[in-house]
Design a protein around this nucleic acid. Structure first.
Lengths: 249, 249
DNA sequence: TTGCTCCTCACGTCACGTGAGGTGGC
DNA sequence: TTGCTCCTCACGTCACGTGAGGTGGC
């Protein structure tokens, strides 16, 4: 007794839609029909379907299954291709799992970049945005250093910049600049590449500088930009003096 | 200076089509345009795109990204769901890799069922087809035993059945039956479940029996079926006699 | 005028899934 | 007559990719 489409699907552990799909693609012979149009599958259809499903489950594209089934066993190349792809996908998925584990462990925002889940809660919106941009501008070594800087930022000076309102008066700004300079200077000393990041850029130097500048400008108000600019200049100057006392004025 | 669509795509490490796709889905705000209709992206678009890409890379469906980005960090459930799926996919892909490795190692046909790569070259077309069907009828223990039987088939009796032509004369058939009986009897002794496979069936008993019978009938010619039927009966009888000598006639 | 970049539909891809609308025997 | 199974289009899904056809400044 031959099988109906549904029976064949259940025998093969698949669905009627899959069977009809394979008919459309010519991957499975269309069987004889009863007088009422019902299809009547036989053993050869079941075996053919099982072979096709086996290859499909291994990740062989349906478009290649016909040729692979044709050649007896002279096509290990196709399988090697599939294997290479599968290997890559496993590696990617394992990285994904590690990242998700980090996010859940640190109770970080779901979109926190890899490596920054532990410090995400310390970041202002602006800094969080900058981190996302850094991931596209810097290489891994530089990103590791950035994470370290955030971890070591214990004096809360970042939070104070974040809180600075656009109409902050001159005295408030000056005071914040003074408090910022030592921190920034120490960073320039601890991470010398900050003064010349060319070796740590993922893209071109000029494009990266512009992107960075654009982002800083758009993410901060005028008072913040004023403070950041002056503090950066002073910090750089102080580090130059430390390195070459002769040039001090 | 704002970015064009292509520039934004390169900054974010993605494609212009992805950006346009996210516009259609409402996942990325459409920026202001220049007088000529060109889009002008700013930092907030870059950051938004990077956040979305991060979630998409983690395997979050685009349809869920809006809500996840909305809730600050109160949606670890969505990530846990994704993680469970990823875990399953990794396990499946690792099984696939193991299977492919077996096929390549044994130089087996690409669609050889798992576990049968080592014996695939010993099988006739009919037996190879039967193996595919067994994978849907029997459980893993039974399949392991089937593989063992094939490995231990050293007298080449299977090959002789395969070679038996439909018009083989009576003497040839009788001789083959005689040679088959000891082998079949030994199998029934070594694997007692063969006489009562109910406990090893993946589907219902009657359906499995019918499928098995159909397949055997369609995959062999009349002479082969004659020999198989008679040899099976004799082997079963011989085993009964061995177990209960009193019943011998 | 030629090249280059941008734009918007509309349709294609991959491997099916999902109705809609109809048929046939109990 | 009602339920159940089968059938064939046609369209939907997911996350984009791929042309087709047109525009605008150098």
């Amino acid at each position: 007794m031959p099988w109906s489409t549904r029976e064949l699907a259940e025998l093969a552990g698949t669905t009627v839609n899959t069977i009809r799909h394979y008919h459309r693609l010519g991957l499975l012979e269309v069987p004889e029909r009863r007088y009422n149009g019902y299809k009547e599958y036989e053993t050869r259809h079941l075996v053919s379907l099982l072979r096709t499903r086996r290859l499909a489950n291994l990740g062989v594209p349906l478009s290649k299954i016909a040729e692979i089934s044709g050649d007896a066993d002279g096509t290990p190349d196709a399988l090697r291709e599939v294997d290479a792809e599968v290997q890559e996908r496993i590696a990617h998925l394992q990285q994904v799992r590690a990242d998700i584990a980090g996010i859940l462990r640190d109770d970080a925002p779901a979109d926190a970049p890899a490596g920054f889940t532990g410090v995400a809660s310390k970041l202002s919106d602006a800094d969080s945005s900058m981190i996302h941009i850094y991931t596209r501008l810097y290489d891994q070594d530089a990103l590791d250093d950035v994470r370290e800087m955030i971890e070591n930022d214990t004096d809360g000076v970042n939070a104070e910049i974040d809180a600075l309102s656009a109409d902050a008066d001159q005295a408030t700004r000056d005071e914040l600049v003074e408090r910022l300079v030592p921190t920034l200077a120490q960073r320039l000393i601890d991470y010398p590449w900050l003064s010349d990041p060319a070796a740590h850029l993922a893209k071109g130097e000029e494009a990266s500088r512009q992107t960075f500048a654009e982002a800083v400008a758009e993410l901060h108000n005028p008072a913040q930009l004023d403070v950041l600019a002056r503090a950066s200049m002073s910090a750089a100057e102080r580090v130059r003096e430390l390195r070459d006392p002769e040039s001090a004025h």
